[in-house]
Each structure stands twice: as C-alpha cells, then as structure tokens.
Design a protein around this nucleic acid. Structure first.
Lengths: 187, 187
DNA sequence: TCGCCATTTTACCGATCGGTACACACTGAT
DNA sequence: ATCAGTGTGTACCGATCGGTAAAATGGCGA
C-alpha cells in the first residue's frame, strides 16, 4: 500500500526528467519503460490514462512543489522581501542554475499546450500573482507590483530559453541576479 | 526553373507555420503533405534530406529574415537608437503581437535542440551581439551594453512563453513597451 | 517530333507509436 | 489453504511514423 504510493512517486520523478529531456511526443513509452524500469503493465497500472495522465501527474507535482516552496511563502510570509529573496534562491536551485529546463514553459511553447492549457496557465498565473502580492506588500502600488511581477516571471522563463539556446547556464544566473537587484529589496 | 525556386520558398513558408504549430516531432509528413499540398515525392524532391532538411531550411529562412530586418540595422545603422526602435517594431510585427511563437526558442527548449544547436545558438547570439553593438554606440560601455542586450533578448523570449502560457498576447506587447522604455532612448 | 528533366503520384517498406489483454507472481488477511 | 488485491511481464493490436522506389506526367528546348 505504502509501497504503491512510493513507487508511483518515484515514477513521477523519473517521468519529469524524461519529459524534460524529450518533450511530450519524444517521451515514448519504450523510453519511459527503459528509464523507469517499469514495463507497460506497471505503467498503465499506475497511470490508467496512459501518457497523458503521466504528464498530468508530472505537471501536478511541479505545480505542487512551487506552490509549497515559492508561491505560498510569497503570499503569506510576513516579510515579503525575504520571501522574494527565497523565491530567487529556490528558483536557482530548482533549475539547477540554468542547466534544467522549465517543463511547463516547454509545454507552453509546444503542440501540447492545448492539452494542458489549464494547468500551464494556473502555474504561471499563480507565480505572477503570488509575486505581485509580495511586491505590493513591500510598498508598491497595485499596478506597479503587477507589472514588475509579470516582468520578472517572464524574464526568468526567457533566461532559461536563452541559457539553453546558447548553451551557457551563466545566462540564467546573471538574469536572476539582475532581476533580484532590480527590485531593490532591503537586505 | 524559377517555378522551382518559388514552390520551394512557398513550401518553406508553410513548413514554418507547421513546425511552429506542432513542433518538430508533431509535424508529421502526412500533416506537412496535407498543409502544403505536396506529396511525399515532391517534398523529398525539394528536401532530399527529409524532415531534418525541411526544418533546417525553415531555421535558415528565419535567421536570414532577422539578419536582414533586424540584426544588420542594429550593427550598421548610423543612428543606433533608431535601429533599436526599429527592432522593437519589427519584433512586434513578426511575432504578431504575441500571437506567434518563436520557433527557434521552441526548438531550443525541446528535444531537437541538439540537432540544430549550432543554428539556434547563432540566432540568439547574433541577436544579442547586434543589440549590444547598437547599445554601445548609444554611449554605453561594453559591459553595460552586453548585459542589457542579453536581458532584452531573453525577456522578449520569456514574454512569448508567458503570453502563450496564460493565453494573453498583451503580455508580450506590455513587455516590449517596458523593455523599450527601460532603455531610455532619445525619441 | 522527340527526348530530356523537373515534378508528381502511388504503392510500399520496416520500425515504432500508444494502447490493450491477459496470464502470472507476490503479499497479507482470513 | 485460500482468496482478493496489487503489481508485473509479454504478446499483440491497428495506426502511423519517416523514408524509398519507380512509374507516370507535363512542359520546354533542340
């Protein structure tokens, strides 16, 4: 019983890496089977909905992680500046300083956007709105906070694209530093 | 003879839209055939290298267009501020105010990055370096120009991702306005 | 009129795709 | 000992994948 839960969670972690590396279409069941060590029987036992359910589970897990580690603190931490600094720290760690792709962003650009449109939209909207909330609580007015939050979130995504495009993870690190510095948070 | 060239050019334009819409793997030969009106025989006549050559041709065409319409002016226009303003105008038009995806960026995030790594890298590096050159000629020192150029290019990419993710093209329009305004170019 | 050459049509290839069916193994409770 | 329920391995399905081969078509110059 517990074993079931753990195996499925392990599978989701492995699936995340596979989808990140090969995209949705490129992540064939044979590749998934090879990487997870699970045969089709097991995979369809854990994910009766097939590949689509596997990808949905991965997106849900990512969304959940960000909600817990980033979004919620942005909304609830009594010290919004600290929560924002934490956001940059966690973001750098999660994306491995630019060596890791944002799966949600990759899905948003690809042909599978429509299939997972709702989840993709709430992920990005959640990030943007949580950051806007924190920025507003640092003293900015509503409009400025929203504009700045939108800019930071999209710039982070763009930095991931550019870092991978020119094969230079430092692009991402530099972008994070610039964005964080540009917010002028009290140390 | 001329007809040949024209038909191939037409095919490349159609191919660009298909790859944009479905990604590399999603752009099956049957879909390509249906959309271009060309059978496999014709496709392989124009692109003996198959799908890979089709995608390469599309990337080359995109690269060529940006080089002509954006990068070269950035590097050569005696009025660098005007060239930068032109860049924003052309960028907005090319990406249909956020309704169109950047194919190069999508490839960079996907599993086909390795296959087209060189062309992807030169596209983005070309953009960044041309913009840095123009910024330097507006009076910035080398380092500041490079940093700002890198930021603008990646922020544009990110805005395309976010705009598509939340299904709101205005995100892209807002981002362009903010970036252009942030450069403080003389009107 | 002929033949050349670009282009297209059509049929076909083996491989792989996502998905299904089902028999089998293991485990823990009764 | 039996049984239900949780997993797993394997064979198979039709569809589609990217790609090939070769015959038919069509226009254009000699």
């Amino acid at each position: 019983m517990t074993r079931t839960v753990n195996e499925r969670a392990d599978a989701v972690a492995a699936l995340a890496e596979i989808f990140r590396e090969f995209g949705y279409e490129g992540a064939s069941l044979s590749r998934i089977g090879a990487r997870t060590g699970l045969g089709k029987g097991s995979l369809y036992h854990f994910f009766p909905g097939g590949k689509e359910e596997m990808a949905a589970a991965v997106l849900a897990e990512i969304d959940g992680w960000f909600e817990r580690a980033v979004f919620a603190p942005l909304r609830e931490d009594p010290d919004p500046a600290a929560a924002i600094r934490r956001m940059f720290r966690e973001t750098d760690a999660y994306f491995r300083s630019g060596r890791r792709v944002c799966l949600v962003g990759a899905f948003a650009l690809g042909d599978v956007r429509d299939r997972f449109a709702a989840r993709i939209a709430t992920y990005f909207a959640g990030w943007r709105d949580a950051l806007a909330d924190a920025l507003r609580r640092t003293g900015r007015d509503e409009g400025a906070a929203a504009a700045e939050a939108e800019h930071v979130v999209s710039a982070i995504q763009g930095a991931l694209v550019l870092a991978r495009a020119v094969d230079d993870p430092d692009v991402f690190v530099r972008a994070l530093a610039r964005l964080e510095g540009g917010l002028g948070l009290a140390a």
